[in-house]
């Protein structure tokens, strides 16, 4: 196989792709803000004076002389600060959950597509079984079985999110296994798992990378959704989902409370998606878009 493109230092065409630049810029900025949260905002749990500063619109200064870039919510908490501290939770949960589901999905899908006999049918059955579980009900139940927490959300999202990837890998591997170049590899004496790992999987990776990038965005959205329903990260710990939920009741008199975390969420998911697209095109130059 060719040397991996990320290892080729002088290859800069990836960085000239506007989607890659936008995606990386937004994600890096979000990660940086999340990591340096205490430097760019006051920890929301340390804020006081609830009554005097509630419902300030964006770009206003309260009577203590504190500037509020995105305004304040009904408890007088700075929306920007909650957004930045919420990014830590939302981004972390999304990334870890996808890592978990990609690992499971790749293993199950590849095995099911390659060993099509009893192994394949069993694994496909397992995948269908997991797919048929009503995810939201499962999440509702798990959240009531254990205390809702970030770790629980990661586990639940990871364990309920691998099936799409498994199915994509499975159909890709099945199609590839019937291709002439795989047959010739077999004819040349390459054996079982080696065919899968050296000849089939590298060609099946494109949809996995795209699905993983989309999955990061999706996981961040689902975490937000769960927190929105009150089943994810629990307030007062801010996550983008429970920030949107807390702004729901004040939509009429303080629309910025729900709007700001939503816009942040959309920006990050768009960035992850575009970066995934750019990576895909770079990995597979034959299909350069």
């Amino acid at each position: 196989m060719e040397k991996h493109w990320l290892l080729r230092a002088r290859d800069s065409s990836f960085l000239r792709d506007p989607r890659a630049r936008f995606g990386m810029a937004v994600l890096l900025l979000a990660l940086l803000l999340a990591l340096c949260a205490p430097l760019v905002a006051v920890d929301p749990s340390l804020q006081r004076d609830i009554v005097a500063t509630r419902f300030l619109p964006p770009l206003s200064t309260d009577q203590h002389g504190t500037f509020h870039l995105l305004g304040t919510d009904r408890f007088g908490r700075d929306v920007w600060a909650r957004l930045v501290f919420g990014a830590r939770v939302s981004l972390g949960v999304g990334l870890l959950a996808v890592l978990l589901s990609v690992a499971i999905g790749l293993a199950v899908g590849a095995a099911a597509g390659f060993w099509q006999g009893r192994v394949g049918i069993t694994l496909l059955g397992l995948t269908d079984f997991a797919l048929a579980l009503p995810r939201v009900v499962l999440l509702l139940l798990l959240a009531s079985l254990w205390q809702p927490s970030a770790a629980l959300v990661i586990m639940v999202l990871g364990l309920t999110g691998w099936m799409t990837i498994a199915r994509l890998v499975h159909s890709e591997v099945r199609t590839l296994a019937a291709r002439p170049f795989v047959e010739s590899a077999v004819a040349l004496g390459v054996r079982g798992p080696r065919v899968l790992v050296r000849h089939i999987l590298p060609n099946a990776l494109t949809p996995v990378i795209v699905a993983a990038a989309l999955g990061v965005g999706n996981a961040i959205m689902l975490e937000a959704g769960l927190s929105f329903l009150g089943l994810g990260v629990q307030p007062p710990t801010p996550s983008w989902g429970n920030l949107i939920a807390s702004g729901r009741d004040t939509l009429v008199n303080a629309p910025w409370v729900a709007t700001a975390p939503g816009v942040a969420l959309v920006l990050v998911v768009v960035a992850a998606t575009l970066l995934g697209d750019a990576v895909r095109d770079r990995l597979d130059p034959a299909q350069r878009r």
Binding site: L214, G217, M221, A224, G225, F228, I244, A258, G262, L265, V266, V269, V270, T273
Partner: peptide, 9 residues
Amino acid sequence: TLFAVPGYW
């Protein structure tokens, strides 16, 4: 963008 927008939001 549409793809990235959460439904409830």
